[in-house]
Amino acid sequence: MRKYINAEAMQHAMKLAQMGATVQQINSKMCYVTFDLKEDIKLEYVYNINSKEKYFLERIKPYPLPIKVFDSEEDLIDIIQIDLEQFKSAINSHNLSDFIKINKRLNKTIKKFEDLFLYYNVPTIEMDIIMEEISKIEEEIDKTKEISKRIYFKKDPENL
């Protein structure tokens, strides 16, 4: 099985190199982590440990979110623990399903925007309108933060 995977990787690398890519194949270990929070809500992650001892973490469920690269296993586990605590707390919220729905919709919107950019020559005026609408959403998030009660204090938000 290992020989087959290595052969497949070599074939992919060759095709990508023919397309102009520089390909580095890194021996690594992929780890998949699942927490059952509620009967219909799972918290799932995938992380990769590469030969340079770097850890790339991504949340898969309840919605996808690349988190970051960590220098140590301890830092990676600390972030998963904080995330788990936050989601366990959020389960008690009557807005959790709406929050997850909005987040999934935002992810879908990002993909639609990328498709718009990659498939069409978009007029500048339309880009300006989209940017203005994004600014309105960001303002609403900031306003909502100001009027909402903070419930988690072990870590400060990164983007607020």
Score class of each variant (00 low, 15 high):
I60E: 03
K61I: 02
K61M: 07
K61D: 03
K61C: 05
P62H: 00
Y63L: 01
Y63Q: 00
P64F: 10
P64L: 13
L65T: 00
P66T: 02
P66A: 04
I67C: 01
K68N: 01
K68D: 00
K68A: 00
V69N: 01
F70T: 01
D71W: 00
D71E: 10
D71N: 11
D71L: 06
S72V: 04
S72G: 07
S72D: 02
S72E: 05
E73C: 07
E74A: 15
E74M: 11
E74L: 09
E74P: 03
D75A: 07
D75S: 08
D75L: 03
L76K: 00
L76R: 01
L76V: 02
I77L: 04
I77H: 03
D78M: 08
D78T: 07
I79D: 00
I79S: 02
I79V: 05
I79E: 01
I79R: 02
I79K: 01
I80R: 00
I80W: 01
I80V: 12
Q81K: 13
Q81G: 03
I82N: 05
I82S: 04
D83P: 00
D83G: 01
D83Q: 03
L84S: 05
L84R: 07
E85F: 02
E85A: 06
E85M: 04
E85I: 03
K88Q: 12
K88W: 06
S89G: 14
A90E: 03
A90W: 02
A90F: 06
A90K: 02
N92E: 08
N92L: 09
S93N: 06
S93D: 05
S93E: 03
H94P: 06
H94L: 09
H94Y: 08
H94E: 15
N95P: 07
N95F: 15
L96K: 04
L96A: 06
S97D: 15
S97V: 13
S97E: 15
D98R: 14
D98C: 10
D98Y: 13
F99L: 14
F99C: 08
I100G: 01
I100H: 02
I100M: 04
I100D: 02
I100C: 02
I100E: 02
K101D: 07
K101I: 03
K101W: 05
I102Q: 09
N103L: 14
N103A: 14
N103W: 08
K104I: 06
R105D: 10
R105S: 11
L106H: 10
N107S: 12
N107K: 13
K108F: 13
K108A: 11
K108C: 13
T109V: 12
T109N: 14
I110R: 15
K111M: 14
K111P: 05
K111C: 10
K112W: 09
K112S: 11
K112V: 09
F113Q: 08
E114V: 09
E114C: 07
L116W: 07
L116K: 07
L116F: 07
F117Y: 10
F117Q: 10
L118V: 08
Y119F: 11
Y120E: 14
Y120M: 13
N121S: 14
N121T: 11
N121V: 11
N121D: 14
N121M: 13
N121W: 09
V122D: 04
V122E: 03
V122T: 09
V122W: 04
T124A: 11
I125T: 12
I125Y: 08
I125F: 15
I125D: 09
E126S: 12
E126L: 13
E126R: 15
D128H: 11
I129E: 15
I129G: 08
I129C: 13
I130Y: 14
I130H: 10
I130S: 12
